[in-house]
Design a protein around this nucleic acid. Structure first.
Length: 710
DNA sequence: GACCTGCTGCGGGCTG
């Protein structure tokens, strides 16, 4: 029995809490963590007690009287650290274990106190670990040389991206500082079976990392509605229906964009005011001030009596506890199935409760995409994610960080350290040496006999506040109302005196702009427009597109769809019925018009993007439509010559990419540190991370174009 | 028709 394995004080904690039994994931984690030395990934749905599943056995097993921090908890969000701090402190309060928050907004006095007596548990972000390595490497040694456990929360948010590679590298560097093995526990609610190898890579030891999985799913009820949108703004009928659906509930609305988030919260409140409904309409996204967001979270979590409606983006997708939510509304399709899983997980959090999700579509293709996501959700599909195998940009970043950390290191030690780092396992030693040589050439590094130190250019890169993170953020203007910060918005032509805009679920008039200090002063107003935000969103996975094609070709009637949705779907099916698709991998519809063809690729964003470039290289104009996954190409027909031409373009890709990169570095804007790489490495990361030319060429080689015979 | 994430050290001025 798992309970009997726990230490006395932990058993007392469980008794005092009045828990009748341990959750399945908790029982499994306790047995395994207490009896083995493996790393574990705990995969279990939201609100299933994963934090306790990790900490109960860790607290049982660890001797906190030893010098040094014993447990390091790593989180992707400051907000999550602040939220989990209370829970972990509660677990520790009778055990006399200190818990310390260590992030950019944590109190310095408490950090100082920890440095004087390093002990207990520390909650930290990856960027704060990076900063400590760069600015105070002696603190890393002082705090973590006796570290026993690392807990990584929301580990899926680190899979398949640069931040995950950075974290993998930082964990390796932490391990180099300690005498004993560190055991790593990763937590996640949405991690597909195919992604376990990638999650295990983060621990640095794939063989020694096991998965504990609780597949129990909550039942979910979905209903689809259709309101055609003719303009940029949402149809009034949709808003009225939305109001009725949400007025007597605790609801989260996900409209996919910050602008729509503002539009919905302001307009719903206006309807509610007119009908004497409640006033608790909020908006929550990255441009709303942190303090306002916290007060919204606090309201949702601590009030029981009042209904509320929070219109939000993915800021409320991750694990921050906002208490009970009755209903989730999704406006148009999510960009991934895993995002849908996270959002649905926010409602019906208690055991046995059903999640309720209402989905509104404003266009037929959007309806098809959101229904495809829903079908894949029911099948348990989650997008497989690949970590970059040769992340030269992260290698360069870590190389500079290590040289700063060591204040000078022999070239051989530097190269051996990078070679041993599992993050860069697939990068050859020859390539690492070349990158070091290039860095010396460009003054990022300076060679002094057999050692390197940071060069003049390197100092400038490393000694910047921007160095600690591996993702790019645009500069913002602060929005202030009588001394209080409302949020921050990007600069756009819209930012002019007397212009009105929506922010934080309110309407404001711009009264003053300080261009130098990047501050906008506003006063309340009666009517206004949504602010202009610039985003470039994520890529849609090919499986969603394939599912869309399958649904188009089926004749099934679905009970989740209301009458309007069903007739929209029937209409789309009618348009495509003449194409005779039978092989969903290779048969693709083709429309031939005068001097133009439209190819419905039903492939993911990355392949579409690659096809577009390959076709453009032949001098054709291509318009890529991401909504219906089509390419409009200015040729009269798909002739054998046309296809051969494209296949030949594949051979001269490198020189084409080289030409594009020499014009500007816009293509590379997905990689923060890529611009410091030698050209041939820039081309390689483009081909690995932004495009997938192999799959695109494979599709061109094997596709069967189907033309309509109606 | 598009999401999100984090952040040092130092010095000056102000508050309790």
């Amino acid at each position: 029995m798992a309970y009997e394995l726990l230490s006395q004080p932990i058993r007392k904690y469980i008794r005092d809490k009045g828990w009748e039994s341990l959750r399945p994931i908790q029982a499994a984690a306790i047995s395994k963590i207490l009896t083995t030395e493996n790393n574990y990934i705990l995969a279990s749905r939201t609100a299933s007690g994963k934090t306790e599943a990790a900490f109960l056995p860790i607290l049982s097993k660890t001797n906190f009287n030893e010098q040094g921090v014993q447990v390091l908890y790593i989180s992707p969000l400051i907000a999550l650290i602040n939220d989990q701090f209370g829970r972990v402190e509660d677990l520790c309060k009778n055990l006399e274990i200190d818990v310390t928050k260590w992030h950019g907004e944590a109190k310095r006095s408490l950090k100082k106190k920890l440095l004087e007596h390093p002990n207990g548990i520390v909650l930290i972000t990856p960027e704060s670990i990076e900063a400590m390595f760069v600015n105070a490497p002696y603190n890393v040694a002082q705090l973590f040389s006796n570290l026993k456990f690392i807990v990584i929360d929301e580990i899926h948010s680190f899979i398949g991206n640069d931040r995950g590679l950075q974290l993998t590298s930082l964990i390796f560097r932490l391990r180099e500082q300690t005498k004993k093995e560190i055991i790593i526990i990763g937590l996640s609610a949405t991690i597909g079976d195919e992604n376990y190898p990638e999650a295990k890579r983060i621990t640095g030891n794939i063989e020694k990392t096991k998965v504990l999985l609780d597949r129990t799913q909550k039942s979910t009820v979905a209903s689809f509605k259709f309101f055609k949108s003719e303009t940029k703004e949402l149809p009034l009928d949709l808003l009225k229906d939305l109001y009725v659906e949400t007025k007597n509930n605790k609801t989260l609305i996900f409209p996919n964009s910050r602008a729509k988030t503002e539009e919905i919260s302001v307009k719903l409140r206006r309807i509610s005011d007119r009908l004497n409904g409640h006033k608790n309409y909020f908006s929550h996204h990255s441009s709303v001030d942190k303090e306002i967001r916290e007060s919204v979270e606090h309201f949702a979590k601590n009030n029981v009596r009042f209904d509320f409606c929070i219109s939000c983006t993915s800021t409320l997708e991750l694990g921050i506890d906002i208490g009970t939510v009755d209903k989730i509304i999704q406006i148009d399709s999510t960009h991934s199935v895993s995002s849908l899983v996270q959002r649905i997980g926010r409602s019906g959090r208690r055991d046995g409760e059903t999640s309720i999700v209402g989905i509104y579509a404003t266009g037929n293709w959007n309806l098809l995409q959101s229904f495809a996501c829903w079908q894949l959700y029911k099948n348990g599909f989650l997008e497989p994610i690949k970590m970059a195998s040769k992340p030269y940009d992260i290698l360069l970043h870590q190389l500079l960080s290590i040289v700063k950390q060591t204040s000078g290191i022999t070239i051989e030690r530097l190269i051996n350290g990078l070679k041993a780092n599992p993050t860069f396992k697939l990068i050859d030693e020859k390539e690492i040496r070349f990158l070091v040589d290039q860095s010396i050439q460009k003054d990022y590094l300076e060679k002094i006999q057999s050692e390197v130190i940071l060069g003049i250019e390197g100092e400038e890169i490393v000694n910047s506040r921007e160095f600690y993170s591996v993702f790019i953020t645009e500069p913002d203007f602060k929005v202030i109302h009588s001394g209080r910060k409302i949020g921050q918005i990007p600069f756009s032509p819209q930012i002019r005196l007397d212009e009105n805009l929506l922010l934080a679920a309110r309407i404001w008039k711009i009264k003053d702009i300080d261009f130098k200090g990047c501050v906008i002063e506003v006063i309340p107003a009666k009517d206004g427009k949504t602010p202009m935000f610039f985003g470039n969103g994520g890529a849609i996975h090919g499986e969603i597109r394939k599912e869309m094609l399958r649904i188009l070709k089926k004749e099934d009637i679905y009970e989740e769809l209301n009458e309007d949705c069903t007739s929209e779907l029937e209409q789309l099916r009618f348009e495509f019925q003449g194409y005779h698709i039978s092989d969903f991998d290779l048969d693709r519809p083709l429309v031939v018009k005068e001097n133009q063809i439209i190819w419905f690729t039903f492939s993911g964003t990355v392949i579409n993007r690659s096809l577009k470039m390959l076709i453009e290289m032949s001098g054709h104009e291509v318009i890529m439509n991401e909504m219906n996954s089509s390419l409009e190409i200015d040729v009269p027909e798909i002739s054998p010559n046309f296809l051969k031409d494209i296949q030949n373009n594949y051979i001269r890709l490198d020189s084409h990419l080289e030409y594009l990169l020499s014009k500007d570095d816009f293509l590379l804007s997905f990689s923060k540190w890529g611009k410091y790489l030698p050209l041939q490495f820039q081309i390689k990361i483009l081909k690995e991370r932004f495009f997938d030319f192999e799959s695109a060429i494979n599709l061109i080689d094997n596709v069967n174009f189907r033309m309509s015979n109606t």
